[in-house]
Simulated assay, not measured.
Amino acid sequence: MARIGLYSTLIIVVFGVLIPFFIFRLCHWLGFKPLLALSFFIGLLYGALKAEYAWYGNGILGNAALMAASGVVLSAYVALSYGGASLVGRAASSLRR
Score class of each variant (00 low, 15 high):
Val14Gln: 01
Ile12Lys: 04
Tyr77Trp: 09
Lys33Asn: 03
Val13Tyr: 01
Val72His: 00
Phe40Ile: 06
Ile11Val: 15
Gly5Asp: 02
Trp29Ser: 09
Phe15Ser: 07
Tyr53Lys: 15
Leu38Val: 13
Ser70Gln: 04
Lys33Asp: 05
Ala69Gln: 11
Leu49Glu: 05
Ile19Cys: 02
Lys33Tyr: 10
Leu36Val: 14
Ala2Cys: 00
Gly57Asp: 02
Val88Met: 10
Ser93His: 14
Tyr82Trp: 15
Glu52Met: 09
Val88Ser: 11
Ala48Phe: 14
Ala37Glu: 10
Met67Phe: 03
Ser94Pro: 01
Ile19Gln: 03
Ala91Arg: 14
Ile60Asn: 05
Leu36Cys: 14
Tyr7Val: 14
Val17Ala: 10
Leu35Pro: 05
Ser86Glu: 06
Met67Lys: 00
Lys33Cys: 06
Ser8Glu: 10
Ala68His: 02
Phe32Thr: 07
Tyr77Met: 15
Val73Met: 13
Val88Tyr: 13
Cys27Gln: 12
Phe32Val: 07
Leu80Phe: 15
Thr9Ile: 01
Leu30Trp: 12
Trp55Gln: 05
Ser39Phe: 12
Ser94Asn: 06
Ala68Gly: 02
Trp55His: 05
Phe32Glu: 06
Trp29Tyr: 08
Ala51Pro: 07
Ala92Lys: 09
Trp29Ile: 13
Ile42His: 01
Ala2Tyr: 02
Ile12Phe: 07
Ile4Glu: 02
Phe21Gln: 08
Ala37Gly: 13
Arg3His: 08
Tyr46Lys: 06
Leu49Asn: 11
Val17Ser: 03
Gly84Ser: 02
Ile19Leu: 14
Gly62Val: 10
Ser8Val: 09
Ala91Val: 14
Ala85Phe: 00
Gly83Thr: 03
Asn58Ser: 06
Ile42Leu: 15
Leu95Met: 10
Ser94Thr: 12
Gly57Thr: 01
Ala85Cys: 01
Gly89Val: 11
Ile11Asn: 07
Arg97His: 07
Trp29Thr: 09
Tyr77Ser: 12
Gly31Ser: 05
Gly5Glu: 02
Arg3Asp: 10
Ser81Arg: 05
Val88Cys: 10
Tyr7Cys: 06
Glu52Cys: 08
Met1Val: 08
Leu87Thr: 11
Ser93Lys: 13
